[in-house]
Every structure is written in structure tokens, then in C-alpha cells.
């Protein structure tokens, strides 16, 4: 037997470019943003690279967002691809202020041979999540591809919502506080352990959930809404990646208090076992809010009333030092926080 040569010609897309963080942003910027953004458009468009787009309609903003969901395994502790596909899109709308969803589309591409029982279970999970988010699926599409042409199934959802209070991810000002709405890193670690067959017993479950209800409890109160300067959900790339984006778009530096970061013992422990920094790990039911200092207590109190926001806490402050960067204060010392590159993987050293 002789060694078979792999085709080495030309570059190829690597998984790193889908993992959030620098590599992915570079790919998107080079491939899509530069050219798509040349067409005239009134509102928040693709070049803003926000959670979605916003189109002005009279006094309102129509917010629109789309997301394709692929996840392995399809069912993971705390959720499945169905719940993820609804929550992800509802949350992207909510992060721009569109907490009341007008409608969702759902497009499914299936691999030949996919189990109908699994498909039904996913569909039931989607419906349950839609009810939770009060977000109806209003149209959809289904395609089947040959065996091996895709891996299981892909779900694309698109969502639209109207809002008067458009919230961006670039509105942070010096003095604003950063709130995270609950314990971090649960989704990414739970999925990673399941994906790589690393067996744990204990409380390691994804936080995947639609957050529009929780966000609405803030934004529907005009006094509180006015104090929210920026929002973003820390999905792929985790809190570290989302804060970098917010800091650099807002041109502020963020001092992050490491010891304030809310996380369960299970997350802390699995993070240490696998050598993964929880700040780099995806969340699917948490939001980062930039909030004016004078309204912090009221907003925290309101978040604490919501089941998804019980562990909300202040984790950082915006300032003028190191604009665009995140300074991690560990209690021992201070250090610039790196932006994650690609998906974090279990490591040995």
C-alpha cells in the first residue's frame, strides 16, 4: 500500500472559520460584508455586523435576522437543535430590541435516511419553544439531500419583529456597566462534552432558551429602556468574543471583574478539567447588557424577577483605558483578555 495523497491545491475553509472569533469575522468581512454593503440602504445593514438588520418603517424599525443551525449531537443535555433554532433567532431579534416577534420562517434540509421519529421530536421541541417565546412560525421549506451530502439536518430560521427602541451593540459609553443575565458557558460546555463523548454526571446542561420575554420586561419600561445602551448575546466565541465586538464598535475599553463572573461549580470544574476558559464558551440563553450606571440597580432588580435572569449580575465597567480591548481584573492582577480563535477544544496542556 502506498500513501494516498490528499488534494493539497488551493485553500479550504476550516472549522476554525465557523467557531466565532477572529477567524470567522475575517472570513465574513472579506467574503460578504465588503461587497454587499456597497448597495444603498437606510438602516442597520450587513456592514454593521450586528445581531440582525433594522429597516426604518415610519417611526418603527423592522428588525430582521437569519441563522442556520447545525449542531452535533442534535440532542444534547438541556435541549436540541429544534429549541436552538427557534431560540437563536428570537434572541437575535431581542438583542436589537424587537422582543415581540411578528413571525418566523423555518427551512429544513434533511439527509436521506434521517429518522422520522427524531424529526418529529425536533418539531415538537420547536413548537414548544415557539409557544414559550410567543413567536409563530408562519412559513417554511423542506428539502431532502442524498445520503452523505449533508450531516443529518440543517435548520434555517429567519425572524422579523417591530420595535420603537432599537438597541445596538455599539452604544457603550464610558461609565456604563456591563450586566450578564446569568451563569455563563453552560451551552458550549454541555454540547462539547456530549460531542466528544466525554462523560460527566452532574449539572452540566445547555442554557438554550428564548430571552425575548426577559428583555421585554426591561424594554417595555421606557425609563429602563432608555438606560440600556447596548445589547448582545454571547453565543459562539462566548462572553470574550461578544465583549470584544461591543468594545471595539463602541470605542470603549471594558474592565471585566473575573471574580464577578457568574458560573456554576460544574462549569468551573469542567472548564478546568478540559482546559477551556468559560469566557470563550458559547451561551444560548444569556445576554450582555450595557447599562447606564444610575439605572443598574433597577435593571438588575427587574432581571431578577424573571426566571432566566435570576443570576444576573454586573461583571464590568466601560472606560477610556485601552479602547477596543477587554481588561480582565483577576483580583491578583490585570491583563488584556484575548479574543478566542475558533472553537475551544479539550486540551491536555
Amino acid at each position: 500500500m502506498t500513501a494516498i495523497l490528499l488534494p493539497f491545491t488551493g485553500g479550504r475553509v476550516t472549522l476554525k472559520q465557523g467557531g466565532g472569533g477572529r477567524a470567522m469575522r475575517a472570513l465574513i468581512e472579506r467574503l460578504f460584508v465588503r461587497d454587499f454593503a456597497t448597495m444603498p440602504f437606510d438602516g442597520v445593514g450587513v456592514d454593521a455586523m450586528d445581531d440582525g438588520a433594522a429597516i426604518r418603517i415610519g417611526d418603527d424599525w423592522l428588525v430582521i435576522t437569519t441563522d442556520s443551525h447545525v449542531i452535533h449531537p442534535i440532542v444534547f443535555p438541556g435541549g436540541d437543535i429544534g429549541r436552538l433554532s427557534i431560540s437563536g433567532t428570537v434572541n437575535d431579534l431581542a438583542m436589537m430590541g424587537a422582543t415581540r416577534v411578528l413571525g418566523l420562517t423555518c427551512s429544513i434540509i434533511l439527509e436521506e435516511g434521517f429518522s422520522l421519529d427524531s424529526l418529529e421530536a425536533i418539531q415538537r421541541s420547536m413548537i414548544a419553544t415557539c409557544r414559550e417565546a410567543n413567536a409563530p412560525v408562519v412559513t417554511g421549506d423542506t428539502k431532502v439531500m442524498g445520503r452523505g451530502e449533508i450531516d443529518g439536518l440543517v435548520i434555517n430560521t429567519c425572524g422579523i419583529g417591530l420595535t420603537r427602541t432599537l438597541v445596538r451593540d455599539n452604544g457603550l459609553h464610558t461609565g456604563d456597566r456591563i450586566i450578564v443575565t446569568g451563569n455563563i458557558a453552560e451551552h458550549g460546555l454541555a454540547v462539547m462534552a456530549a460531542r466528544h463523548g466525554i462523560e460527566f454526571e452532574g449539572d452540566l446542561v445547555s442554557d438554550v432558551a428564548p430571552m425575548n420575554g426577559m428583555i421585554d420586561s426591561i424594554l417595555s419600561d421606557a425609563a429602563l429602556a432608555d438606560a440600556v445602551t447596548a445589547m448582545k448575546d454571547p453565543t459562539r466565541g462566548g462572553v470574550a468574543s461578544a465583549l470584544h465586538e461591543m468594545a471595539s464598535k463602541s470605542n470603549v475599553g471594558i474592565v471585566l471583574q473575573e471574580r464577578s463572573l457568574p458560573m456554576t461549580d460544574a462549569v468551573r470544574s469542567v472548564g478546568e478539567l478540559l482546559g477551556i476558559d468559560p469566557l470563550h464558551v458559547a451561551n444560548e440563553g444569556k445576554a450582555l447588557l450595557g447599562v447606564r450606571a444610575d439605572a443598574v440597580d433597577q435593571i438588575l432588580a427587574r432581571l431578577h424577577e424573571h426566571p432566566l435572569g435570576r443570576n444576573a449580575t454586573v461583571i464590568g465597567t466601560c472606560g477610556e483605558e485601552r479602547r477596543g480591548a477587554i481588561i480582565l481584573d483577576t483580583g491578583f492582577g490585570r491583563r488584556l483578555l484575548a479574543e478566542p480563535e475558533g472553537e475551544p477544544l479539550p486540551r491536555i496542556c
Partner: peptide, 14 residues
């Protein structure tokens, strides 16, 4: 990682 992108089977283990 490049080999994986070209179709090689790589399992990440702990």
C-alpha cells in the same frame, strides 16, 4: 485541522 477539512477522520479525545 487542514486534513480534516479535506475529509480526514479526526476524533478529538480527552
Amino acid at each position: 485541522a487542514d486534513a480534516q477539512a479535506s475529509g480526514a477522520k479526526i476524533d478529538i479525545v480527552y
